[in-house]
Simulated scan of single mutants.
Amino acid sequence: MKVISLIARILLGLMFTVFGLNGFLHFLPMAMPKGVAGQYMGVLFVSHYLVAVFAVQLIGGLLLLANRFVPLALTILGAELVNILLFHVLMEPSGLPIALFATLLWFITFFSVRQAFAGIFWMKVPEHSQL
């Protein structure tokens, strides 16, 4: 399982690093999607919101590749993945297989560091907690 989680972490880190860098350096040609997806991407581009999206992807990917602050990287990339999945499910289904693959890698990596998230799954916090 250690080897699988290592491979998943590196692949996920590479995916987010490459696509995050591509947002700044434009080395992978990407056509603007048609229809609502294109309008949505156009708004994100014009508002410069994509700069923040690509920066978060790049930071999260680099953290995974460096094997530093992996739970933090998974937290910020988890939010990105939700948005990526919703975008592809609702507006641009052609990219859904890659989004699902990235989600699978995220869950494999999450499973390997799940102990770091144990505190957020408390149903009820004790009244006199010393957190």
Rank of each mutant, 00 (worst) to 15 (best):
Glu92Trp: 12
Phe111Ser: 12
Met123His: 12
Thr109Pro: 02
Phe117Tyr: 09
Met41Asn: 14
Gly61His: 04
Val43Arg: 06
Val89Pro: 03
Leu72Glu: 01
Gln115Tyr: 00
Ile59Lys: 05
Trp106Met: 10
Gln115Phe: 06
Gly78Pro: 01
Leu50His: 08
Leu85Thr: 03
Gly42Pro: 11
Trp122Gln: 14
Phe111Asp: 13
Val82Lys: 10
Gln57Ile: 08
Thr109Arg: 10
Val113Gly: 00
Val113Leu: 00
Gly38Val: 12
Phe54Trp: 15
Ala55Asp: 07
Ile76Pro: 10
Phe45Thr: 14
Val56Lys: 02
Arg114Lys: 13
Ser112Glu: 14
Pro71Ser: 07
Gln115Glu: 15
Leu72Tyr: 01
Leu86His: 13
Trp106Gln: 06
Arg68Met: 10
Glu80Trp: 07
Leu74Asp: 07
Val46Lys: 14
Leu72Phe: 08
Leu85Trp: 01
Leu100His: 06
Ala102Lys: 10
Gln115Trp: 05
Phe110Ala: 10
Ile84Gln: 06
Tyr40Ala: 12
Leu96Gly: 06
Leu81Ile: 15
Leu85Ser: 02
Lys124Gly: 03
Gly119Tyr: 03
Ile84Asn: 14
Gly61Lys: 04
Phe107Pro: 05
Met123Ile: 11
Leu105Asp: 04
Leu77Ala: 10
Ala66Thr: 00
Tyr40Trp: 15
Val46Ser: 12
Asn67Gln: 13
Leu64Trp: 10
Phe111Met: 13
Glu80Pro: 00
Val82Trp: 03
Ile120Cys: 01
Gln39Val: 11
Gly38Tyr: 03
Leu65Phe: 04
Pro97Ile: 14
Ala116Arg: 05
Glu92Thr: 05
Ala118Cys: 01
Ile76Ser: 02
Thr103Ala: 15
Ile76Cys: 11
Val82Phe: 14
Val43Leu: 04
Ile76Gly: 01
Glu80Tyr: 00
Phe117Ile: 02
Met41Asp: 09
Leu62Asn: 03
Leu62Ala: 05
Val56Gly: 04
Ser112Tyr: 04
Val51Trp: 02
Arg114Ile: 15
Asn83His: 11
Phe69Leu: 15
Phe54His: 15
Pro93Ile: 07
Leu64Phe: 06
Thr75Leu: 15
Arg68Leu: 08
Gly42Met: 03
Phe107Tyr: 05
Leu96Trp: 04
Phe101Asn: 05
His88Pro: 01
Ala102Gln: 06
Phe54Asn: 15
